[in-house]
């Protein structure tokens, strides 16, 4: 008997009714939405912080270089072969071979010891292979495995890589990510409580209406519907405001961050929320609102029965 149109229209009516309620008490609505938005902004900020830090260290790891000092008795020919096999590794980006002679010439040129070096008999320097990992393979574990591989060459004397701080930073970011998750969970509970409470207040304010509606045969689902829409709207609007906070915060911090990045000679760019992440924020906020309203309605609506 229910036509889809009637069903849809009833829902639309409940949605518009909920919107009307929000607009009729603009101050209270704004306050609730502001509190919800702050609770959502905090974890979202932390999330963006970790994401940006990861992006920033990503561009720094491009500068990582592994240097393989070969044993002095390795022939130039063998060194070339080794450079080729290093090049064949998936992790390898640019690989250059600096032969002992090139090394010596460079040293002579830049060190200023030119004359003293003339006294040397032969060339004491080894052939050196320098390897830059590909940027998408510059994470600590890839570099460690590359280092292990290169160190296993019998011809390799020393494999040098200065990535200790990258590993530490990565661990720190991992910790921050955990903190983000805990915060997000705690504040999600906060949002549920805020919305549940707003719904509770709304239900007690509309007690008479609920009683009459149940008296004329309104089902629990029907009575609950406007409150679910109300909770969903609270969550959605709170999340939208949170997104605005994030944009404002990024705009305020960006010049300062870029200056900082320039000091470190990094090509760092501030990354904001992607469309999917924005959708996730809005969708998550709406879901939290619905859930909070559901819990609030389940607890308080069933207690209201018509009386006479």
């Amino acid at each position: 008997m229910t036509s889809p149109f009637t069903y849809f229209a009833r829902h639309l009516q409940a949605l518009l009714g909920a919107l009307g309620h929000l607009l009729r008490q603009p101050l209270g609505t704004l306050l609730s939405i502001a509190v919800i938005s702050l609770a959502l902004t905090l974890p979202a900020c932390l999330y963006l912080l970790v994401k940006n830090a990861r992006a920033a260290t990503g561009s720094i790891t491009e500068a990582i270089e592994l240097t393989i000092y070969l044993k002095t008795d390795v022939s130039l020919e063998r060194a070339r072969q080794l450079a080729d096999s290093a090049r064949a590794r998936r992790e390898a980006g640019r690989v250059t071979l600096i032969s002992a002679d090139e090394g010596l010439a460079e040293f002579r040129k830049y060190s200023g010891f030119g004359a003293a070096l003339e006294a040397l008999q032969g060339n004491p320097l080894p052939h050196v292979i320098s390897l830059r990992p590909r940027s998408d393979r510059a994470d600590p574990s890839s570099i460690a495995s590359l280092q292990r591989y290169l160190g296993s060459w019998p011809e390799a004397d020393i494999v040098q890589v200065d990535n200790e701080w990258v590993r530490r930073l990565s661990a720190l970011l991992g910790l921050l990510e955990r903190v983000f998750q805990v915060f997000a969970a705690l504040l999600a509970f906060g949002v549920l409580a805020i919305i549940g409470n707003a719904i509770r207040l709304e239900i007690s304010a509309r007690r008479a209406e609920i009683e009459v509606t149940k008296l004329v045969g309104g089902s629990n689902a029907y009575v609950r519907r406007p409150f679910l829409y109300l909770g969903g709207l609270y969550g959605l609007l709170g999340a939208a405001l949170a997104a605005l906070w994030l944009i404002a915060l990024a705009a305020a911090l960006e010049p300062w961050l870029l200056q900082l990045a320039r000091l470190y000679g990094s090509g760092f760019q501030l990354v904001g929320l992607t469309t999917e992440e924005l959708g996730g924020l809005l969708g998550g906020g709406t879901l939290l609102g619905l859930l909070g309203a559901w819990i609030g309605a389940a607890r308080h609506l069933s207690r209201i029965e018509p009386r006479q």
Partner: peptide, 11 residues
Amino acid sequence: ALPLMVSDTSY
């Protein structure tokens, strides 16, 4: 209209 609104009567 309330008793009809709570049922699925068409508008």
